[in-house]
């Protein structure tokens, strides 16, 4: 049993607490948050900027810990997650909960003191959204859970941007929308070629519930819907030519890779090459797109392009 606390005799190693924060997910969170911060018009003191990024990362870590506290029993039954600290019996469940709450509350308070309470409120909303709305409420209930979960991953650039400008305008919402639209094709491409045990534990993942054909069609739909959203910073006038060209090229490639995935059906013992290619490219896509947004702003600020 993993739910009884006395099963953990030895106090958990600090590395287990670190593992609880999902450090690998955090790198993407830190990157997109930093891009939002750097792409925003105006300036922020570097110390405050660093604290904002730290708070986004720690808040994400707290949310991840709460996620694992809640899903311990599900994690124990899936091969991919069975070695996490709680299901492996290296940590008491309540320790993970308390750790998650401490990180979440701490990051929100420090964020409020450093960058103002609007930014802190957005961070708090993002943590509650991931830990409660997604993990507890919608993930076990709807096959659109990845769409919902994408919302949680979409907060960092918005928070980074608002930390600089002090108000929520259209641009940070566009950045939010980009990651929101990007997540479903990104994740479902992975879900098509990685056989997971989600069905066993009753999590309604799209390929399991709606079937492969429907999932493929929806990958294509989201990939197409992503195009106008990715180009929005340019036609809204918040980004220049460097971003426009990068976004256009990336969008063409993304749709081009999504078409074969969206229209084909896999055979028995399929190598799933197009799906793997789309998944790998989707990661590159996000990094380059946000990188281009920052490059665009920095070059504009340097006065190289009027």
């Amino acid at each position: 049993m993993i739910t009884t606390d006395h099963s953990v005799l030895i106090p958990s190693d600090w590395r287990d607490f670190l593992a609880l924060t999902k450090p690998r997910v955090m790198t993407l969170v830190v990157f997109t948050g930093l891009c939002g911060l750097l792409a925003a018009p105006g300036s922020i003191h570097p110390v405050i900027g660093a604290i904002v990024i730290l708070c986004i990362a720690v808040g994400a870590g707290g949310a991840a810990a709460l996620n694992q506290w809640y899903e311990a029993e599900i994690d124990a039954q899936m091969k991919r997650t069975a070695k996490r600290p709680i299901p492996a019996g290296r940590m008491a469940r309540t320790d993970a909960r308390d750790f998650g709450i401490a990180l979440s509350a701490g990051s929100v308070i420090v964020m409020g003191l450093a960058a103002g309470w609007l930014t802190a409120a957005l961070l708090a909303v993002s943590i509650v959204y991931y830990a409660v709305v997604y993990t507890i409420w919608l993930k076990p209930r709807t096959p659109q859970n990845i769409v919902v979960g994408g919302g949680a991953g979409a907060f960092p650039p918005l928070i980074g941007w608002v930390a600089v400008t002090g108000d929520v305008t259209l641009m940070p919402i566009v950045l939010f929308a980009i990651i929101f639209m990007w997540t479903p094709p990104h994740f479902w491409a992975l879900a098509l070629f990685v056989k997971t045990d989600y069905a066993k534990v009753g999590i309604p993942m799209m390929p399991v519930v709606a079937g492969e054909k429907s999932t493929r069609r929806q990958i294509l739909i989201y990939a197409v819907l992503l195009v106008p959203v990715a180009l929005a910073p340019w036609y809204l006038g918040s980004a220049g030519l460097i971003y426009a060209v990068s976004a256009a090229l990336l969008s063409i490639a993304f749709v081009a890779l999504s078409v074969p995935v969206g229209l084909r059906t896999s055979a028995e013992e399929d190598a799933m090459k197009p799906e793997k290619r789309l998944f790998a490219f989707s990661i590159l896509y996000l990094f380059v797109l946000f990188g281009a947004l920052v490059a665009d702003r920095l070059i504009y600020n340097a006065g190289l392009i009027a």
Partner: peptide
């Protein structure tokens, strides 16, 4: 051995 491991864990946690 358990005692030893417990103390080592506690020490590294305190350090962290």
């Amino acid at each position: 051995e358990d005692q030893k491991q417990l103390e080592a864990r506690r020490k590294s946690r305190n350090k962290a």
